[in-house]
């Protein structure tokens, strides 16, 4: 097993930059889980992934209310947020499997509740508060 990659981001714009670098490595069908507390920068990181995929990062907003935001590009980006979901069944009822097993890139905030539905090839990133603007970003390596 390769060690996890740990980075320090000094600001929200550096978190976006880290997302860009990470996003460049993604391919159609990839699923990315973003872990981290409220305000850690999960949506900022997703803005970076969007930018790497040719989507205007300014359009990327928190999907908490809508659960799913879709962004059209050569490869579509599905930005999911399971914060409001209480069970995997609820996620099934909105047809989440069509996004998880589709041809786009899925980025999932608050994925804990749907972990049982995720494909094996899921990638995970954790963002933690260090102090003020500073964040620790961990890119978990696959086993």
């Amino acid at each position: 097993m390769i060690a996890d990659k740990k980075l320090i981001s000094a600001s929200s714009s550096e978190t976006v930059d880290t997302g860009v670098a990470f996003g460049k490595l993604l391919k159609p069908g990839d699923v990315v889980c973003l872990y981290g507390n409220l305000g850690a920068g999960k949506t900022q990181f997703t803005k970076g992934i969007a930018q790497a995929m040719g989507i205007n990062p300014e359009e990327v907003q928190s999907p908490t209310f809508a659960i799913i935001h879709e962004y059209a590009s050569d490869v579509p980006l599905y930005h999911l947020d399971c914060y409001r979901l209480e069970s995997a069944e609820e996620a099934m009822n909105i047809g989440i499997e069509e996004y998880l097993f589709g041809q786009g890139v899925c980025v999932i905030e608050w994925p804990e509740v749907i972990e049982s539905l995720l494909p094996d090839h899921v990638r995970s990133v954790t963002i933690e508060h260090e102090e003020k603007e500073k964040r620790r970003i961990t890119i978990h390596q696959k086993a």
Binding site: L38, T43, Q44, E58, Q61, S62, T64, F65, Y83, R84
Partner: peptide, 23 residues
């Protein structure tokens, strides 16, 4: 004008949860 990240209602809902109110 538009929000760059969270909607105002989402800010109310999530911050409320941080201070112990139900979401």
């Amino acid at each position: 004008g538009n929000t760059r990240d969270d909607a105002a209602g989402e800010a109310f809902d999530k911050i409320g949860k941080m201070i112990g109110l139900p979401y």
